[in-house]
Amino acid sequence: MADPISRADVEHVAKLSRLALTEDEVEHLTRELAGILGHAADIEALDLDDVPATAHPLPLVNVLREDEVRPSLDRAEVLAQAPLAEDDRFRVPRILGEAP
């Protein structure tokens, strides 16, 4: 059986998910997640090596659209919903680090 989730795991996952958790939250999430994952033990025990995964309940393939221009959104309507806009763009605080 896989190891129950540890506090360090929870902190790492919080970082991956961009969630700032309080001390309290880290503690009870560690417990709760361990409990939920513990229940997944019944699946872990199954031998499913020969079973293919189902990513889609539908047997569809090749759903494509034509390369034709459709109207775009009105910029003003979109930027009106932005928390902060500048120069017709979405403004964010400084970015540390290049894109991966």
Binding site: V69, S72, L79, D88
Partner: peptide, 14 residues
């Protein structure tokens, strides 16, 4: 279906 074009006014092809 937004146009794939270089150099448009910002946030107009969205």
């Amino acid at each position: 279906g937004c146009v794939n074009e270089f150099g448009s006014e910002p946030n107009t092809n969205i």
